[in-house]
Design a protein around this nucleic acid. Structure first.
Length: 900
DNA sequence: ATGAAGACTTGTCTAAAGGCTC
DNA sequence: GAGCCTTTAGACAAGTCTTCAT
């Protein structure tokens, strides 16, 4: 594959300098209705749609199943090979002032986040021990502080802190006024020369592409937030353009972009861009009709008043908007063409947006687990050995090997298991219930097998490994647009018992074996169809859909209307590309955040309930990094997110605190008490009025409404972007504020602290390792021992200085005679060791319930980390392991000055 | 407008790999 | 180099969010 070097382009952005700080004070008026919550039993309502027939029967046609079927979605004809736009260098707006780290920890803690000054004091006590040092000045209403604040995560601004887990976290302050610095920026047209380079190649070229975006020069460009928001249209436009520039998305092909890229989106006749801008425009107009009659930006201005600049800006903005909305002017067109536009607009959906994801895709399909090998070990029923056929035995074994898990204490698990197993046993089987079943013998057999495996010699293990590798080798790779890429999960899931998390209603159900006839393969049209690894069987269907990235899928045996996909690995350029786009979108939010916050703050007291709910929900998502909270079926675990919070999940604690307590994703508990602004507090009280505990708090809201609203504020904005934004900006800010001179180890600790702060904000928890206490006591012992050594060394030093020989060691042996200098050196080394162990111990204790990995993998823009490592001479390997290095290959050449 | 379908990201747990100690 | 401990990679569950269909 030809790898073309991306041409570099320089974009000119006009910066309008309306930076005048605008101070926006929130008014606290609000109807207050404080209600006490009624307690009630729970049970949220939910609609159930059960047993839907699996989705489309395959339209497979060829008798052998090897023929390709027509797709439901129109597949764009893949004409020319995909041309990927080079990664453009976006100008990132770097807010000069860096945000301070988000402080409020969201995690399960009882800490509180305060918004008010007064709260500051209170919160002091809760400060996070680990971060005690850090003093962040809270600028409550400082007009000039804006800048800072805006780029900060809300939580940070709030400073509220919650304590995490057991530790108290501290928090801080409230920023009541957010300033707005409106600016209008007009982007110059950019050409995207790189369009021609294949994505993958682009990645490989480590050119500055990715990096470029990070170029320092971007910094000057300040973003005009206020203006942006307001002018929705215009702003959006700009943004879009910008984003498009930033995101190197697959470019519409120069000439024929429209056809292929948008095949799936029939609606858009024009170009997405156009559409987008139109929408936006409309929105803006609509806004004017709103109660406020004023676009957000305008509102802001009003409140702010102070700046005349703002005004002018606004006007400008408006101008821009109108023009943009009305028609795509040349510029925009050009930009669109150039690539990103479409992307930014539809950026979000990497899927389904009808964009071509690949031109050629070749792979070997998937590999299946080996067939079941009966072991013949008999279980007991009512004290007597029972005969089971292989199928029955297989399922019994699945249950037996879970003997030591918590599932065994869950009635639902056993009930579901029995329902499925009894079907396999048949009506006339001697086994009539689980109560009299004794699976011990099978469990023991399992343990023995495990032990045998463990006891194998290293040669045997190695041989086994090689054998496995040999079998799997061909499935491990796919060729995408001519480039070899790793496949993520090419192994079909083996049968087993479903291990749903939390109180999942389907836990324990049998996850049946998946066969080739369950699997749909997606591959380039003319490529050889992967050979079915099981003789005599064939694939369910073969598709050639280049608008999606999956290589294969099958229906989830537990929930047949859902699918299990085989995708490329995280290190693939396809994944890297979308990862980068995700972070670029989050960076874009930085430009809008000020106005978005101003807008929702204003709407806390909006008369229209839906709008008020949207405002409060957005606030919670921003401040607490809550997830959106999609609706769930009854046959799923009962967990919630923001939009699905129940009245009983939030407790109002006068005068203005809210205590959240709910089960979030994966049934991880979220407990957090935060101080909020009074209007929010009052609004929550109103939403709870006359509802039972199990009623929806935001009864007028769901994620689609919320996200639709967010998209009016910023192209492509959805609830989850706030998590990425707040996580990354927190890391960037903390790293920059707290990195001190020191050795690498100390810097790594600084990084971990920042990482931890993010994990807390995102509520990423882990269970305490079983060996945690043992590890701690071992460390304690070692430290004690070292301290003893130190004491001895000091004594020896004294003696050495007096010309006496050292004391005998514990065994009574005479130690070597050392010079005082040598002893001093040893003392120094020992001290360093003790310090390191102390630090390790503290870190370990600190992180015992916090999972750092999740945020590192999913929320922290790797360019922040890479740039920081470069600036501070920390080897990147100290922060990223091998797989993260591969996953973030696209970020490695970032400029050291990169700021999120 | 709403819900289903579909595709992809996020998240936790654990088996396996790798590293350290004796 | 055996055994233990830590880290990592992989498995797979559970979210989010867009588009399609009604």
């Amino acid at each position: 594959m030809a790898v073309e070097a991306p041409a570099k382009h320089v974009f000119d952005f006009d910066d309008e300098d309306d930076d005048g700080p605008v101070v926006f004070k929130r008014n606290n008026t609000s109807s207050s209705k404080q209600n006490q919550l009624n307690l009630e039993a729970k049970k949220a309502s939910s609609q159930r749609h059960d047993g839907q027939p699996g989705r489309q029967a395959s339209d497979a046609q060829a008798p052998n199943g090897q023929s390709s079927s027509s797709q439901k979605k129109p597949i764009p004809p893949s004409k020319s090979p995909p041309v990927r736009s080079p990664i453009l260098i976006p100008k990132s707006s770097n807010s000069s002032a860096m945000a301070s780290p988000a402080r409020s920890s969201v995690v399960n803690s009882k800490a509180s986040t305060s918004l008010n000054d007064q709260s500051k004091q209170e919160t002091k006590q809760h400060k996070f021990t680990a971060f005690k040092e850090e003093k962040r000045p809270i600028k409550t209403t400082e007009p000039n502080s804006d800048d800072d604040n805006d780029s900060q995560p809300l939580s940070a601004r709030l400073k509220g802190i919650s304590s995490q887990g057991n530790k108290g976290a501290s928090t801080s302050t409230p920023t009541l006024s957010w300033q707005c610095v409106p600016k209008i920026k007009i982007e110059g047209s950019a050409e995207d020369p790189d369009d021609e380079a294949p994505l993958s190649s682009r990645f490989k070229m480590k050119s500055n592409t990715g990096t470029s975006s990070s170029k320092p020069y971007e910094s000057h460009e300040k973003k005009p937030l206020a203006s942006k928001i307001q002018q929705n249209g215009s702003i959006m436009k700009e943004k879009q353009q910008k984003s498009s520039l930033l995101l190197d998305k697959r470019p519409l092909d120069k000439g024929n972009s429209s056809d292929q890229s948008y095949a799936k989106m029939p609606k858009i006749s024009d170009t997405p861009t156009t559409m987008k801008s139109k929408q936006v425009t409309v929105k803006a107009e609509k806004d004017e009709d709103d109660d406020d009659h004023i676009p957000i930006s305008q509102q802001i201005k009003k409140s702010v008043s102070s700046d005349s600049k703002t005004l002018s800006m606004k006007q400008k903005a408006i101008k821009v908007v109108s023009s943009s909305s009305k028609m795509i002017n040349k510029k925009s067109k050009k930009e669109m063409k150039n690539s990103k536009y479409s992307k930014s607009t539809k950026l979000s959906p990497s899927s389904g947006d009808g964009q071509k994801k690949w031109s050629t895709l070749v792979h070997s399909g998937v590999i299946f687990p080996p067939p079941y090998k009966p072991h013949g070990v008999k279980m007991l029923y009512d004290g007597r050995p029972v005969d089971l056929n292989p199928e029955q035995e297989e399922v019994a074994t699945m249950f037996a090997i879970m003997k030591d898990t918590d599932y065994m204490s869950k009635p639902q698990f056993k009930k579901n298991f029995w329902e499925d197993w009894s079907k396999i046993l048949g009506k006339n089987h001697i086994i009539k219930g689980l109560d009299k079943c004794d699976f011990t013998s099978i469990h023991e057999w399992h343990l023995e097998e495990k032990e045998k495996k463990k006891q194998m010699s290293s040669e045997e293990k190695k041989a086994l490994k090689e054998e496995k590798l040999k079998q799997e080798e061909k499935y491990m790779w796919a060729t995408v647009d001519g480039i070899k890429e790793k496949v993520g999960n090419f192994r079909v899931e083996p049968p087993g018992l479903f291990r749903g998390r939390g109180e999942h209603p389907k836990m324990g159900k049998l996850k049946r074996r998946i066969r080739p006839c369950d699997i749909t393969i997606n591959i380039r049209k003319d490529a050889p169809i992967p050979e079915c690894p099981i003789p005599g069987e064939r694939w369910k269907d073969i598709k050639h859909d280049n608008t999606v990235t999956w290589l294969a899928f099958w229906n989830d045996p537990i929930n047949p209307k859902e699918f299990k996909y085989v995708f490329l690995a995280a290190s693939s350029s396809l994944k890297g590309q979308s990862d980068k786009e995700k972070y670029e979108k989050a960076r874009l939010l930085k430009d809008y955040i000020k106005n978005i916050r101003a807008a929702y703050t204003k709407n806390f007291t909006e008369k229209d309930v839906t709008k008020r709910q949207i405002a409060v929900a957005t606030y919670l998502i921003d401040k607490l990094a809550l997830r959106a909270g999609n609706e769930k079926d009854d046959d799923e675990a009962d967990t919630v997110g923001c939009c699905t919070l129940k009245v009983g999940n939030v407790e109002c604690i006068p005068p203005n605190k809210l205590k959240f307590d709910f089960l979030g994703k994966d049934s991880i508990q979220y407990v957090n008490t935060v101080e909020v602004e009074l209007p929010v507090y009052k609004a929550i009280g109103q939403f709870q009025t006359e509802k039972s505990k199990t009623d929806d708090l935001f009864d007028e809201l769901d994620t689609s409404k919320l996200n639709a609203h967010l998209k009016e504020l910023m192209p492509g904005l959805t609830a989850k972007v706030f998590r990425t934004y707040n996580a990354s900006i927190t890391l960037d800010d903390m790293l920059n504020k707290e990195t001190k001179d020191g050795d690498v180890a100390e810097k790594v600790v600084t990084y971990q602290r920042a990482n931890k702060e993010v994990a807390i904000i995102c509520n990423h928890q882990r269970s305490i390792s079983k060996s945690h206490s043992a590890q701690m006591s071992r460390l304690t012992d070692k430290i004690t021992e070292l301290k003893g050594v130190l004491k001895e060394l000091k004594a020896d030093l004294d003696r050495a200085k007096k010309g006496k020989p050292p004391l005998k060691d514990a065994d009574g042996k005479q130690k070597r005679n050392l010079t005082p200098e040598a002893i001093e050196k040893k003392i120094k080394q020992t001290n360093a060791k003790i310090e390191k162990m102390d630090r390790d111990m503290q870190t370990k204790e600190d992180l015992k319930t916090v999972a750092l990995g999740t945020s590192k993998i999913n929320y922290l823009d790797p360019r922040i980390t890479v740039a920081w490592c470069k600036r501070h001479e920390v080897p990147i390997e100290k922060i990223f392991n091998k797989s993260l290095l591969a996953k973030f290959a696209w970020a490695m050449d970032v400029d050291p000055d990169f700021r999120f």
